[in-house]
Design a protein around this nucleic acid. Structure first.
Length: 187
DNA sequence: CAGTGGATGCTCT
DNA sequence: GAGCATCCACTGT
């Protein structure tokens, strides 16, 4: 399945299917290991209250980046899914760093390598994603997306940091990955 | 390791 | 004026 076909389908299929894909920006990035689905008619989604200047990209063609500012400080990046007008997207929550480790370390400052891309705000900082990338087509330069060489096992869990629709198990993490945003292991 | 609170800006009520 | 799809530093065990 091509990336274009994948993001044109239901966000509930696309989100788990994106786990294991490699996402690079200017050759820097890694394997997607954690995402969350935000659907049409989803009270937790920015698109829920309809089209606004901020969420305009969410209602556009699939395969574009929806980048927004979170808590006034951080950028969070989504890949728009489903046909035009739906308002569905997949939030990129964590990567396993594989390419351009030095560039990511430089952008992130003196950080634990484990935390380079472990979290939506950290991920965008490591790849240099900002509001300037809002609306960009991730199938074109400077982005590069590659499928996983083999099927990836995925587990689902509740989404993080939201107050509505918290019962939905729309967070997807690669099974056994040590790179997700909540990798903290209790002793 | 768990829990707390501050930073900071934009959207929508 | 409230409420965030967050992160980090700092506290106390």
């Amino acid at each position: 399945m091509t990336f274009e076909d994948l993001v044109a389908g239901s966000v509930h299929d696309a989100a788990p299917a994106l786990i294991g894909w490699t996402l690079l920006r200017d050759g820097v990035g890694g394997r997607i290991v954690e995402v969350e689905a935000y659907a049409a008619d989803d009270p937790a989604s920015h698109s829920y209250r309809g089209r606004t200047p901020r969420t305009e990209v969410m209602f556009g063609p699939p395969g574009r980046l929806y980048v927004y500012r979170s808590y006034g400080l951080h950028w969070c990046a989504n890949i728009v899914c489903e046909p035009d007008g739906r308002g569905a997207a997949v939030l990129l929550r964590a990567l396993e760093p594989t390419h351009g480790l030095e560039a990511m370390r430089a952008r992130r400052g003196l950080a634990d390598e484990r935390l380079l891309c472990a979290g939506p705000g950290r991920l965008t900082q490591a790849l240099g994603l900002t509001g300037a990338d809002n609306g960009a087509d991730v199938s074109l330069e400077p982005f590069l997306l590659g499928p996983p060489p083999a099927p990836v096992a995925v587990e689902r869990s509740p989404r993080i940091g939201i107050t509505r629709a918290t019962e939905k198990l729309w967070r997807y993490v690669e099974l056994g990955s040590s790179w997700p945003s909540r990798a903290r292991r209790a002793a």
